[in-house]
Design a protein around this nucleic acid. Sequence first.
DNA 1: TCGTTGCAAGTGATCATTCACTCACAATAC
DNA 2: GTATTGTGAGTGAATGATCACTTGCAACGA
Lengths: 193, 193
Amino acid sequence: MITCNEKPGSKTRDRIADASLRLFVSQGIAETTTRDIAKEAGIAEGTIYRHFESKEALAAEIFMETFMPLSRALVLLEGDSGPVLDRIERTVEHFYRLFDEDPTRWVYVMTYQTGRQPKLPPNTPTPYTLMLKMMKEGTASGELADADPDLHTQIVLGMITQPAMGIVYDELDGPLAPRAGEVMKAIRKALLP
Amino acid sequence: MITCNEKPGSKTRDRIADASLRLFVSQGIAETTTRDIAKEAGIAEGTIYRHFESKEALAAEIFMETFMPLSRALVLLEGDSGPVLDRIERTVEHFYRLFDEDPTRWVYVMTYQTGRQPKLPPNTPTPYTLMLKMMKEGTASGELADADPDLHTQIVLGMITQPAMGIVYDELDGPLAPRAGEVMKAIRKALLP
DNA sequence: TCGTTGCAAGTGATCATTCACTCACAATAC
DNA sequence: GTATTGTGAGTGAATGATCACTTGCAACGA
């Protein structure tokens, strides 16, 4: 773990993190003041600094606490045996289930890197790197249509993540998990020879 | 007193807008100070306010100047006759050509709304609303596979925009226009019955 | 001359962060 | 049992830095 000041489970720490997540997503990180956070969490401004080094560190910790478990889970799924398309299907199902548990949190993660230095430890597997590996494997084995893996990695990632954004922007009704099957049907059609 | 809609071509105004665009994309709007903008544009801080009402207005104007022409062009393409898939193809080709001219500008537009009040005049057609209309038309006529148009609108939008983001994040090599054909091949396969 | 454009030095407001302090409680001493 | 001491979470009023924006003035072109 990179920086996690204390055991998660501290009541106050969680109140601060939860309040911050809500405010960061609805107004943006820079537009959220420590006063806002204190008020939303129902604590004093100074208390934030008993639990986090700085506002920036607080924002980064929320990102890491969400992203790292996903990254670890995806590595396991990617390492499975079986057809690439089935592994992608399990990946989608897993991500959509997580998304439904806390959509706000995932919007935060999906938009966090924008305009920010990468906060990930080097060589951390990302959805992008894992998907690219699977696509290369699938085209090499002939399971997938012969096509540029770099381009098709982006296409498939877009097919998976855009419906999630659609739900948050109220263009699509949730929950997302029941739609995994239909998304996968489109992905299969797009990728099969 | 202050006119924010000036004749385009004002040298200084364009220097400010270009510098702002670059900084906004690389560091975010809130993280970019007026001092940064002045330095990057090679002008004095006060000069910004000869051309724009405020930093927020400057950010919004850059967005509108880019988005509105796209919106108008898409309305024309969407109103064409012919198969829906051909209209989508022309839309993709048009967008990818614009993207290649100034990728930075389009990343800005694609991420602008995040955490911001909608700045669009009401009823302005967006890529989302136009695509949804085409998808409904295509499923009604039987040209496309019978599937939820709301979900498939998101899927197709993701297939189109994610490769663009991929280029900006250096995960994919540009230019994008030559890839329009391959993207459309995937879209056709995904949507056809 | 006069309106426009540009500049540099302000200015007040706001922000993240700090710090001296309180409080509740537990361990230790008597 | 009860004083004493230590501790760590919580507080909220400073603090100093920084920011968006203003002002007064100069240069220039019509």
